[in-house]
């Protein structure tokens, strides 16, 4: 199934060249979770990273469905 991953700001360095505006499309097997999808990228998953599914706060083990968008960014401060 096809899903999308969007990385914001400095995380964009971990994206492959075909990414556009920080978004890359991926073909992933059924059962792939939020965690699985984001682990494909070389970004630190620590207390500074925030990961959301379709803009919503979810458990990292949530299985993805076709068309989902996983977004990750690093935050050390706000606006």
């Amino acid at each position: 199934m096809m899903i999308r991953v969007k990385l914001i700001a400095n995380y964009r360095e971990a994206l492959p060249p075909e990414a556009k505006n920080g978004v890359v499309e991926l073909d992933v097997p059924n059962g792939t979770t939020v965690y699985d999808a984001i682990s494909r990228f070389d970004i630190p998953l620590d207390d500074t990273s925030v990961i959301v599914l379709n803009g919503l706060t979810v458990d990292m083990n949530t299985p993805l469905v076709e068309g989902d968008m996983v977004t990750a960014f690093s935050a050390i401060a706000g606006g």
């Binding site: 914001i8 700001a9 400095n10 920080g22 620590d46 959301v52």
Partner: peptide, 21 residues
């Protein structure tokens, strides 16, 4: 670890809030 603030200041935030709607 997360040099967003140094490189972007707070200008990276529109992408974040846009994602959250």
């Amino acid at each position: 670890k997360g040099s967003n603030m140094r490189i972007y200041g707070t200008s990276y935030v529109p992408q974040v809030t846009n994602t959250l709607g």
